[in-house]
Simulated assay, not measured.
Amino acid sequence: MDQNVNNSLKLFIEYLQIEKNYSQYTIEHYQHDIQEFFMFTFEQAIKNLEDVKYIDVRLYLTRLYEEKFARKTVARKISCLRSFFKFLVREKIVSENPFALASIPKAEKKLPEFFYEEEMKELFNACESETLLGQRDKALLELLYATGIRVSECSQIRMKDIDMQLSTVLVHGKGNKQRYIPFGSFAHDALFVYIQNGRKSLLAKNSPNEYLFLNYRGGPLTPRGIRHILNKLIEQSALNGRIHPHMLRHSFATHLLANGADMRTVQELLGHAFLSSTQVYTHVTSEYLRKSYMAHHPRA
């Protein structure tokens, strides 16, 4: 591939940043998938983007399946490359989109994993609030469960985004979309203790910054740091296995729906652009209610 290819990719990245307003995380995925395809075309001695044909797409799909990528991953890569070539057609860099006819494999139907309410109690019991980091970890867990926000959103919360009087947090979501989310008394109390004690002490170890959650050096807590904290809480609790941060988000949505919240409200709180993204939790809720019934009804 020649310099024109790199220029085309640069133009596409600018398009994603400016016109589509995608997050940096999403853009990095697009860039990685496209560059991976470029490596394949180099192996196939394809020198220009215009020379990529449907038969090459079929060969690339075969390569992905041979390397045993998950169907979800293959679907993402094909969708990414379809968007890339669609952009190239729009900009008249190529005349046709070779990915237009490529079929995207159906994703495996996998219901979101979540914690039962009893398991959430175990997690909260594992939080000790005597130490500075313990206060932070408890506030972090309470806020994640109380709001259902993503870990990436949580790491970006600044002090000015928290309104302790109204018990709300301003969340900066995907595509720079903002939403206000309320939180309850448990999260409020944990945040108050952390802000008044733990955060002030952690902040003294570094130059002042605006972020709500800090690491042990006083700097902003990263998404990776949050994942490490959650895994540590699992190890300290009586629960088995590992935790992934989205389990708290899934638990938030499942418990709301199981206790009577309407779908539109949950969609708004989660920051989903489409109701179909939220509807998956109706299946989870049905299973949740069934298991709760079987576990607690005297004649189940």
Rank of each mutant, 00 (worst) to 15 (best):
E210T: 13
C127T: 03
D137S: 10
S207V: 05
E19A: 07
T168V: 14
S95T: 13
A139E: 06
H255L: 03
Q44Y: 03
N206Y: 14
Y25H: 15
D51F: 09
N4F: 13
R71T: 10
F274G: 02
Y288E: 06
R158E: 15
L191F: 11
K232P: 01
G184I: 06
Y180C: 00
R76V: 12
Q24I: 10
I93C: 06
E108D: 15
I18N: 12
E108T: 09
D163E: 09
I93N: 05
I162M: 06
P298Q: 07
E210P: 08
I181Q: 02
K86T: 15
H297L: 04
E287N: 11
R158A: 13
L11E: 15
L133F: 08
N209G: 09
D56P: 08
I234C: 09
R249Y: 10
V280S: 00
H188T: 07
I18C: 00
F274N: 13
F12I: 12
A45V: 08
R136T: 01
C127V: 01
R224K: 12
D51H: 13
A258T: 04
N4C: 00
L132G: 02
S155P: 04
D262E: 02
L111V: 03
H296V: 03
L111A: 04
Y25V: 07
S155I: 01
E122N: 11
P208R: 04
F85W: 13
L9T: 08
F124Q: 05
N206L: 01
P98G: 09
K77H: 02
L101E: 11
R179W: 11
F115R: 08
T73M: 04
N125T: 12
H172Y: 05
G260W: 07
R136E: 01
Q165D: 10
T278F: 11
K109Y: 03
M247S: 01
A100P: 04
L123N: 02
H29S: 13
L212P: 02
L202V: 09
L101Y: 11
T265I: 11
S83C: 08
L166P: 00
M294F: 12
A238C: 02
Y25D: 01
P105H: 08
A253V: 13
P98Q: 07
S277I: 12
Q3L: 14
A190R: 05
E122T: 14
N6P: 00
F114P: 02
E19R: 09
M1C: 11
K291R: 15
L123H: 02
D189K: 14
R179L: 06
L144D: 04
S129M: 09
L191N: 06
H283G: 05
K86M: 12
T131K: 07
N7D: 12
S237V: 09
M120A: 05
T282W: 01
D33I: 03
K53H: 14
H272R: 11
K160R: 08
K106F: 01
E235L: 10
T278I: 12
S23T: 12
A75F: 12
F38P: 01
H228L: 11
G260M: 05
R76L: 10
K106E: 11
E14V: 10
Y281H: 07
C80V: 10
R290A: 14
H246G: 06
T73D: 03
L133T: 06
Y54C: 00
F115S: 06
G219C: 00
A253C: 10
E268W: 05
F85N: 05
P298E: 07
N206I: 00
E43L: 13
I162W: 01
S201F: 06
Q24D: 04
